[in-house]
Design a protein around this nucleic acid. Structure first.
Ligand SMILES: [Mn+2]
Ligand SMILES: [Mn+2]
Ligand SMILES: [Mn+2]
Ligand SMILES: [Mn+2]
Lengths: 222, 222
DNA sequence: GCCATATTTTAGGCGAGCCTAAATTTTTTG
DNA sequence: CAAAAAATTTAGGCTCGCCTAAAATATGGC
């Protein structure tokens, strides 16, 4: 069964929204927002994906991936993240430039290519944004990091990833020299607006708004 | 102006057939054969490419690329051949496996990607099949090699490329240890069928049928 | 020059993937 | 609980890229 590029993008979107949704089916309007297509177009495609047994779909009830659909989603995510590693590690793109290119490359169809790319890159476990890369069976360790705003306390943390991938946000993090794997020292928590005073390395401290710290994933140390 | 993947493939096909045709316009039936689409579909697309000023098209008269069309063709060819180099040099695919994958990768849209890929590969001048890689302005040295069957005489030659890219043919060449850049010693020419007795390195001699030598490009030595 | 054949174009149709407008169903809310 | 609002689906239409069948044009042989 052939799966088109567009179908792959829908499957990937359903996968992503499903993982945020915790159990709920993914709604037409969520997909409409995420894919920037009109709701009527979404319904159209959901019917087709349902015929192909890639999703479970009942009118007005939201949608779930089948095992088959999830397998495809994971394969596309794997390719996306491997290509992002290639682009940063080998071609020296910065982490805010790789997403749109990987968005195209994730649709290249060749299992052998993915296998060799993975080996070439040294079987990386995470992409440049800290997201885990599923292995060839679709398995990956569930991310146990939480957002900085979740902790909302002083202490030392390791920066492990981002939940927001926009170039603007990523460039901001680069501008304050924040890279994945680095330590963050939260020196002060401002209760009224949730902002944080943060020290990175031995640099001048900087301030994270609630919006920033909500998109920064960390692991607490000790 | 957006150019679709399918349009790129048509443009590339016209470019290729045009270069064989020497001055003649490319015919609908040539394109039909080459692209494995029905002639009616070809006519359809020619009208659209003509509207976009990518080709010059007059009913029943065959078709020519415009300067704009040729620029696109060269950009796609450049990407195709760079990716073939990547696949063989970095991922260690053999030269008979890369074409179908490059056929997909040539459509990735990102000028920065091509620039960096080219640098990463060390600005290669030819692809794994000996075909020249256009530079970022679309320039490349015209291939001056001729086919072995063109020479049809004894002597020493350097194997510089192939005109046939089918896996079967390429695998045959690999099986007799023939690689690009190698010397070929033609020891005997059989007039009646055009076959050749050839020595590669110091191996046992082998015999090339007319069909084989018509697809092997060489440069004469001395 | 005329006829047969080959090539090319036109006409009409189809699926994928999008849209707008209208109808339907679900959810919220007073 | 009924009305309003929001979400979703249906209906109908569009472009792209393909097809088959039929019509038009070009070409080659006599
Ligand atoms: Mn990404
Ligand atoms: Mn994509
Ligand atoms: Mn292609
Ligand atoms: Mn090639």
């Amino acid at each position: 069964m052939e799966i088109s590029l567009v179908e792959e993008n829908y499957i990937k979107a359903i996968y992503k929204l499903q993982s945020l949704n915790e159990g709920e089916g993914v709604s037409t309007s969520d997909l409409s927002r995420h894919l920037k297509n009109k709701a009527a177009s979404i319904t159209d495609m959901l019917k087709r994906l349902s015929l192909k047994k890639l999703i479970q779909y009942q009118k007005y009830q939201g949608v779930f991936l089948t095992a088959k659909g999830e397998k495809i989603a994971l394969a596309v995510v794997r390719k996306h993240r491997l290509w992002e590693v290639f682009l940063t590690e080998k071609l020296h793109f910065s982490w805010d430039e790789v997403h749109d290119i990987a968005e195209q490359m994730e649709h290249i169809k060749s299992e052998e290519l993915v296998k060799r790319l993975d080996r070439y890159l040294g079987h990386p476990k995470t992409d440049p944004h800290g997201d885990p890369i599923p292995d060839d069976k679709g398995l990956f360790r569930a991310l146990q990091s939480k957002t900085l705003s979740h902790y909302k306390r002083k202490g030392k943390f390791i920066f492990t990833g981002v939940t927001e991938h926009s170039p603007a946000f990523l460039q901001y993090l680069s501008s304050i020299n924040l890279k994945i794997g680095q330590a963050l020292l939260i020196e002060q928590v401002n209760e009224f607006d949730g902002s944080l005073k943060v020290r990175i390395n031995k640099q001048q401290p900087c301030f994270f708004s609630e919006k920033v710290s909500a998109n920064i994933l960390v692991e607490a140390i000790k």
